[in-house]
Design a protein around this nucleic acid. Structure first.
Lengths: 176, 176
DNA sequence: TATTGTTATACTCTATAACTATA
DNA sequence: TATAGTTATAGAGTATAACAATA
């Protein structure tokens, strides 16, 4: 049993702002799941668009590139392509492409020192580590600014509920 | 003041499944906002990947195309390109491209009957309406299946919290 | 002058599938 | 046979900016 009672009601207008976006197409007559999905999707799209835009204008890079580097920061010894693929939720070929670009820019390197000679370990170079650190600091600031309007208690409840949702969804995937 | 007390704790394992995904890179030492964002993003990516894949395999179409048609279903008189752009949260040029494809397939049509001769109204054709209805039914089933593991009370709370988040985020966008 | 929509350009990401070299 | 990674292919979305027609 999980207790969400630490969450206290937030103070906000009774009527949500009517902002035209992906959720607008709902009329209220749709199943609750559809409305929930479209609302969550518009939240994500809103933030993602903003982050993509700032990564481009301030760091001349993209979200997948930043994500790949972020995954590597917690693996000093490096990660295999297949591990990156699973972590980033994209296919193997895509990871090869993104890695190629980052390698060309000297931000990551392929290490051929595994016991298994089919695979290689990808890891950040020094330059990559420095570059990522700068981006990460900015990224944290952006996210905190964008999500900062939500009260801490609400944020905690949301975090827990999304954890439940994620677990439930995973278990309902056809593959799973 | 909003009351979320209708939400009752869900029953689930105390320890969340350790699934490797976008959220995995968090260590617990990141700011709460970052962890929340990555968790929400992995929820969305999970569902989006699944929906994209099924739209492709079962209906030979894409998510943006389905989204554009969905927007039109609630506007019998049609929508302007600029309205679609805002609703779909993408740029004007993109909407032109997606509309071109749908028009070529006879699913939407451009109507030049506005007072403003610069703009046109896009609306679903009969064929488009029928086609969309089939997709929408399937889409509802998919989403209900994917989100169905979450208890109704949890789902309601999540819906409300995401509403708060969306509103807060909108008001914190640089443009806003 | 500003706005609506289109076009042109160039790039990034994407899935799929065939391929290689290992295991 | 199975797996790790690459390559080839094709396509789909994206931003940006220049453009024409109209307001």
């Amino acid at each position: 049993m999980t207790d969400y009672s630490h969450y206290a009601a937030t103070q906000h207008p009774a009527v949500a702002l009517s902002i035209p976006d992906l959720e607008t197409r709902t009329t209220g007559r749709e199943p609750a799941d559809i409305r929930l999905w479209l609302r969550m999707l518009s939240c994500c799209t809103l933030i993602e668009n903003e982050v993509r835009s700032r990564l481009r204008s301030e760091f001349q890079t993209t979200l997948p590139r930043f994500d790949l580097m972020s995954q590597l920061t917690h693996a000093p010894k490096g990660l295999k392509m297949s591990e990156l693929s699973r972590l980033m939720m994209v296919t193997n070929g895509n990871v090869t492409g993104i890695t190629d670009q980052l390698e060309k820019d000297g931000l990551v390197e392929r290490m051929k020192d595994d016991g298994d000679r089919r695979s290689s370990l990808i890891r950040l170079t020094m330059k990559g580590r420095r570059y990522h650190r700068r981006m990460q600091r900015a990224h944290e600031t952006w996210i905190q600014s964008l999500l900062g309007g939500l009260a801490p208690a609400a944020r905690n409840t949301l975090f827990d509920l999304l954890g439940d949702l994620k677990q439930a969804t995973y278990s309902r995937l056809p593959a799973a």
